[in-house]
Design a binder for these strands. Sequence first.
DNA 1: CTAATATGTCAAATATATTTTACATTTATA
DNA 2: TATAAATGTAAAATATATTTGACATATTAG
Lengths: 68, 68
Amino acid sequence: MKNNIHEQRKQMKLSQAELADLTQVTRQTINAIENNKYDPSLDLAFSIAHILKTPIEKLFIWEEPQND
Amino acid sequence: MKNNIHEQRKQMKLSQAELADLTQVTRQTINAIENNKYDPSLDLAFSIAHILKTPIEKLFIWEEPQND
DNA sequence: CTAATATGTCAAATATATTTTACATTTATA
DNA sequence: TATAAATGTAAAATATATTTGACATATTAG
């Protein structure tokens, strides 16, 4: 799943470390999520969306599975 | 975090097993989430919200951490 | 240019989510 | 009432997310 954390974080003029502090995770976690190493937990996703003042569906771009 | 999966699932007249099938997880996973044993992954949260035709912020009620 | 700040990354440990198999209990239906 | 369908639950295994500590590179500011 894609996300717009990098862009929104920049708009808020926050560093990865600052966003990490505000969301109570480590800098590495924010970095990994921005670089799509893995998706955040639902709780962290809500927390980031709240800090970045962006609706969760706009911050994270989910695509429903194609076939199967 | 609270959720309204049970209510919305009933409105759609789906069983836990049917919702599980539609979201490609097991019945036990849906049951555990409905009964607040743990929160779903972000991906599964989006998937459930999609199937239940409910915005994710309405389906899952996140509360920002109080103090610290 | 040089120091400070920000970002990328890695390995090992821990925490949390999900599956599988299995069985018990409750609720709906013939 | 009897049977089927739906739900609750549990333990063990696997997958994924997060932390910690550390180091390297890149970017910004003095």
